[in-house]
């Protein structure tokens, strides 16, 4: 049984396209006067957040609520977790309360994997960002956004598209998930960063690495700017904020050298003036706000496919739902690493 989403590397091309297509269906719901589907009525989704991330939490919360699930938000701050309760005891508590899915954000890489492979809980685990490891739903919403701008949409992948990801690759879970997912979808990915912010071992990743932003801009269909924390400067990853912005920041001049159709992406929150200037952030080519909206659709699709069983996601659309298969959608649900590494 496939029931978790831990890593973007666990998704096949067909899994990923199914999620994106399902998200398109979900997005249509947002255009209705009543933005709610009955699909997950009676199911309980727990948002288990050990790190503050209001954006991601409310995105998952909105997604679950639009599918009529009951949502419990569990924030580590001010809870028993801050008094030293272990992940295991927290998980056992949630299990006892009957959680069907646990959406987990954790500062330690591998914590969702641990949750999914332990016998602590029986429900689905969705990784909402773990340490510097992965953030698979972010990669999915990024791919969804790219597909809408760079292809004809439903059923398509990103074959042949050139995607450039710029910034703190070393500490970025967004970059890791995107490298996996975008290459699975056929895109060619180039990472751009100062050498200090590229991990040792990157040579085995299925992507190119460049230290020169200007050299790759002109052939990029999408340029994703990652948030660079100012604290990195104090750990000698780069000399000064200004030097970083000069060499690796995206300003209007650089954006002007991108192909006309190319988009600028940012997972947020943005450091205006650091990795991206206000001129670029506020330009129509920047999809940062659109990515937030797409995030809800993607998370609806993921929760639906993990929990929804055999019923069609959207019953009243004129088109047959891609999420529906004659024998039920189970066989096409996203796979998980759980089975593969046993």
């Amino acid at each position: 049984m496939k029931r978790h989403l831990i890593s973007a590397a666990d998704l096949t091309r067909d899994d990923a396209v199914l999620i994106l297509d399902t998200a398109e269906e979900m997005a249509r719901v947002a255009d209705r006067p009543i933005k709610k589907l009955p699909t997950l009525r009676g199911r309980t989704v727990v948002n288990l957040f050990f790190e503050d991330s209001t954006r991601t939490r409310i995105s998952f919360e909105a997604a679950a609520k639009r599918l009529s699930a009951d949502v419990i938000n569990f924030s580590a701050k001010g809870s028993s977790v801050s008094k030293g309760e272990s992940l295991k005891d927290t998980a056992l508590t949630l299990e006892a309360m009957g959680a069907d899915a646990v959406v987990i954000r954790h500062g330690d890489s591998g914590a969702p994997h641990r949750l999914a492979t332990s016998d602590w809980i029986g429900g689905s685990v969705v990784n909402a960002g773990d340490g510097t490891h992965e953030h698979p739903t972010q990669a999915l919403l990024d791919a969804f956004t790219m597909r809408r701008h760079l292809t004809d949409g439903a059923g398509q992948d990103l074959s042949g598209r050139h995607i450039t990801i710029v910034g703190d690759i070393l500490h970025s879970r967004v970059a890791r998930s995107n490298v996996h997912l975008l290459t699975t979808l056929g895109a060619e990915v180039t990472l751009v960063a100062p050498p200090t912010l590229v991990p040792v071992g990157v040579e085995r990743w299925p992507c190119e690495v460049s230290y020169d932003l200007d050299a790759v801009l002109t052939k990029s269909d999408a340029v994703m700017m990652l948030r660079v924390q100012r604290e990195r400067m104090n750990a000698a990853f780069f000399p000064t904020e200004r030097e970083y912005a000069r060499r690796y920041g995206l300003d209007g001049d650089r954006m002007g050298r991108m192909p006309d159709h190319a988009i600028v992406m940012h997972p947020g929150p943005m450091n205006r003036g650091m990795e991206i200037t206000a001129q670029v952030a506020d330009s129509p080519r920047c999809t940062a706000v659109e990515q937030v909206a797409n995030g809800v659709s993607i998370r609806m699709a993921v929760l639906y496919l993990l929990l929804g069983g055999n019923e069609p996601a959207v019953t009243t659309t004129a088109h047959p739902s891609p999420a529906t298969t004659p024998d039920g959608g189970a066989a096409r649900r996203p796979s998980s690493r759980t089975e593969e590494t046993k």
Binding site: S109, G110, T132, V200, G201, R204
Partner: peptide, 18 residues
Amino acid sequence: AQMNEGIVSAELGLAGWP
């Protein structure tokens, strides 16, 4: 540091121990 720094640490996002 959490594990040997190399190919596996790069994938797992665990801080490397060179």
